[in-house]
Design a protein around this nucleic acid. Structure first.
Length: 281
DNA sequence: AACAATGTTCAGTC
DNA sequence: GGACTGAACATTGT
């Protein structure tokens, strides 16, 4: 699930339901997800504290933590990355929802064995990172500065400067979290489709007007994905399969690997040389 | 059974 | 340093 929109939705969940509840137990049960995992490290760092503020940059969430009853000194930041399939579950009642997500059952529902990290609160509730593929990460004091500006906050001018250089394919540049943080594979295809720019176009060969359309595509794709529940609600998502056609013009969707990731684009409107986009059909 | 999957990282190479 | 490739990580779903 997780690209910027899903992560923002998760952050809002934490901010709305998990703050200011005293942490009584820390179940860092998965030494692969909770890294680096030394015995009791997370428990010792977090027990007795509360989550105070939930931040996000790109796909990284981190929570400031409060002091304990013994010491007013704030604790470390708790970093959470959802990886490819992670999701955050926050529940008020421990008994009624053990192992599951509140109000959801059946196919697709989180299974208890996917619980990789759980904070138990004094009031009986919990916060859990559920992640079937175990590519999510929990760690203390994550390196936020390794990330570029957040894709939702980057200014138009910054965006131009970060994007329009080098020989790399523009999609690969959009996926580079150290340049701009938060764009994932689905979102990159959606943004470039909205902007009518080929994903394979060298970043340094973009014209100002191309970068402007990409920037506008980014703003609108982000807003729409957050409002609709995630990156998978984009228009391109529905046609990323053999035989898929462009929702705008009806041409066949092209498929290849760009930036190491599966990539779909409109074969008519997103021409590699950048010339066809303005030819209205 | 083979393959692809919304992510990151690291080694090797040019 | 920049860019590219491939593999690795671990697991599920088609």
């Amino acid at each position: 699930m997780p690209e910027l929109p899903e992560v923002e939705i998760a952050r809002r969940l934490i901010a709305g339901k998990a703050l200011h509840r005293r942490i009584t137990r820390v179940e860092d049960v998965d030494p692969y997800v909770c890294r680096p995992h030394t015995a009791g490290q997370l428990r010792d760092a977090l027990a007795g504290r509360t989550l105070a503020v939930a931040h996000r940059r790109g796909k990284l969430i981190w929570c400031e933590t409060s002091g304990t009853e013994q010491s007013g000194t704030p604790g470390p930041d708790l970093g959470i990355h959802l990886g490819m399939t992670g999701r955050i579950i926050v529940v008020a009642d421990h008994e009624a929802t053990e192992g599951g997500e509140p109000l959801r059952r059946g196919a697709g529902a989180p299974r208890p064995e996917w619980n990789r990290f759980t904070l138990r609160f004094a009031d009986g509730g919990r916060l859990t990172l559920s992640d079937p593929r175990r590519l999510g990460r929990v760690r203390l004091n994550p390196d936020v500065d390794a990330l570029g500006p957040d894709a939702g906050e980057v200014t138009h001018q910054e965006f131009r400067e970060l994007i329009m250089k080098g020989t790399i394919a523009v999609k690969a540049r959009l996926l580079d979290q150290s340049k701009i943080a938060g764009i994932g594979n689905l979102l990159a295809d959606e943004v470039l489709w909205q902007a009518k720019v080929s994903p394979a176009r060298p970043a340094g060969k973009l014209r100002g007007e191309d970068a402007d359309r990409i920037y506008r595509g980014l703003r609108s794709a982000l807003a729409s994905a957050i409002a609709n529940g995630g990156s998978h609600t984009g228009e391109v998502m529905a046609v990323r399969r053999p035989g898929g056609i462009c929702p705008r013009c009806g041409a066949e969707m092209g498929h290849s690997i760009v930036g190491g990731r599966s990539t779909w684009w409109c074969s008519r409107e997103q021409s590699p040389d950048g010339s066809v986009w303005c030819t209205q059909v």
